[in-house]
Design a binder for these strands. Structure first.
Lengths: 334, 334
DNA sequence: AATGAATATGTAAGCACTTACAATTTTGTT
DNA sequence: AACAAAATTGTAAGTGCTTACATATTCATT
């Protein structure tokens, strides 16, 4: 069934039907009602592709995500999708894993679907690495990066200032007399590095010498963290606080501590990052840095809509995170 | 840039270019190479809409999900997307919340985008409720339901046998001499009810009278469960085991127990459902019923592809879950 | 009632592809 | 070298929509 069928049934031309579909006005109320009724009765839905061909916009945005099964990305995607849809856009989701080739393939598919823009969630590599997939996309459509940056034409970003957030957190810990702070991160993403820089700056500015043994790398799995922290403890390296680049890592660390009868927060204080459900659910409940993912994502979509409208927008926005205190760390002086 | 530009540049007709794009054969290797090179050089990507117009398939599947921020749904969506994409299909994601009207709106958008099929994740209401959105979709395209059923033409489903899984779990608990088993569920979804039926059957078949005070309803939030369980304990209602319809609920329950100095699993044994990250991360680690979501989703996509190919397929598949033992409950007799 | 402006409707040419069918070229056979 | 068969290539007609432009209708004004 197509616009011709409707036109014939309603006894008007296809132009009139099209005008009604698109609310273009210049149609008498009488015919409008008549045509709308016919569309209703025949259960007609306009074909979005054909429309896209004419309009040159399909009202879809590609969302490139390394992994929606990750709670943190899932939340981001969920908010992005909601924001987009409430503005008349749909989201095509592509989960690509960490591989550049897969990302490029996905981007090609999205480009062939002539999406109006692309939003990258956890899909930017470190600066030194190859980020050519972003360039490829930005050549054709605006690209929005969530929590990452890449300076290129037609490329925008909205990020949490992870470096600054961790820096502030270190300062808070130092104020509370913690001098040996263990930093745990996974190297999968750029953000672990950013956060590490905040950690380093925090210590340096507090005149605390940096102890490389207190900087621990591991995979983003419970077992991997547990092993890593076990090793630190077994090597008799002293620490009274932990900052983890991710809530899962913090939880894994606490598991290790609990096994070794080290009390949280009495003996060791723990802070996570992302303020995810895990933070709430762990025992003790985890103090965690909130990276304001809702605000980030909302702002990202808003910016993109502005770009569509040809409005001037800030290319790179940075928002500061804040610490949500629970049981695993409560500062003496709040 | 379009197929004409490529054709002109390569000195062939658009039909030849089209044949190459679609791998239709009947093209000499020489021209094939020539044209491919031109496409490469000019950075050409075929327009999927125009193709869809001709082919009458856009190679996209709509995924209707009540909430991707929910870890469990996120996992499902992630697997579905991966399976689809590895078979040349894209996923359009629509998160609609629990509202029927929103679902209908989303379905209309998806239909207008002429998706080849629709997959529903957490988007089926109870039987007695209005599920007309499914009918509306199935009128036009095949609909696949994950963990739910709705018997209608062109509608398929793949589910975990939640009733049976909980039933088996109750049996296991009874074998271990638990007679007072607390069942906690949230009423948001159909599945809480299914699981409750398994709980009831398990008790009945074990000749244990049903105590309505041991059946607790609450919201799907930590605080809500904690309150609910607190109340049970404060009313001095005895129980030695808990089955929760969701891992979060189990975690909330454990939080309440811990606060009241009730030891898990020594004094009370706890079993969750879904075998999510939470189960791993909670303290003590949660024994949880795995509903095999990967298998469900893979099977769902496979079935859909078969439907596309016109192959005969089972309309409704049921897979049994299994208990993953961790710390919160380990049976004496395994 | 006649006029012109304002409003409503229709015609036809895109948009970027696919594909049936026709036309051409190549190949193999004698 | 001539011919038919096979392989390759091209033409043109769809696919369902938008929209500039042309045409027809309505309305207010004199």
């Amino acid at each position: 069934m197509n616009i011709y069928d409707i036109a014939k049934e309603a006894g008007v031309s296809i132009a009139t039907v099209s005008r009604i579909i698109n609310n273009k006005g210049n149609v008498s109320p009488k015919t409008q009602d008549k045509v709308l009724k016919v569309m209703q009765d025949m259960g007609y839905t306009p074909n979005a592709f054909a429309r896209a061909l004419g309009l040159n916009s399909i009202k879809m945005v590609g969302v490139l995500c390394s992994d929606v099964a990750d709670k943190h990305y899932a939340k981001a995607v969920s908010i992005i999708e909601k924001e987009l849809r409430s503005n008349g856009y749909d989201a095509i989701l592509c989960c690509t894993g960490k591989d550049l080739k897969d990302k490029k393939k996905a981007i090609n598919v999205l480009l062939s679907k002539r999406v109006d823009a692309m939003i990258l969630v956890g899909s930017v590599f470190q600066e030194k690495d190859d980020n050519s997939h972003i360039k490829e996309a930005a050549e054709t459509i605006p690209v929005m990066i969530i929590n990452g940056t890449y300076d290129y034409e037609n490329t925008y970003s909205v990020s949490c200032d992870e470096e600054e957030s961790v820096y502030t957190c270190v300062k808070k810990l130092v104020e509370d007399n913690h001098k040996e702070i263990l930093y745990i991160y996974d190297v999968e993403s750029l953000s672990g590095i950013n956060k590490k820089n905040g950690y380093l700056r925090g210590l340096t500015e507090s005149n605390i010498p940096i102890n490389e043994q207190l900087i621990v790398k591991c995979d983003r799995t419970l077992d991997s963290v547990k092993d890593a922290v076990d090793r630190v403890i077994e090597n008799d390296i002293q620490f009274s606080a932990i900052i983890a680049a991710e809530d899962v890592l913090a939880v894994g660390a606490m598991k290790s501590l609990t096994k070794k009868r080290i009390r949280v927060p009495r003996q060791v204080v723990v802070v996570g990052f992302n303020n995810s459900v895990l933070a709430e659910c762990s025992t003790p409940a985890l103090t965690s840095i909130d990276n304001k993912i809702e605000i980030l994502c909302e702002s990202a979509v808003k910016t993109l809509l502005d770009v569509f409208d040809g409005k001037k927008t800030k290319k790179h926005q940075i928002i500061k995170g804040n610490i949500v205190y629970r049981e695993s760390f409560v500062p003496n002086k709040m």
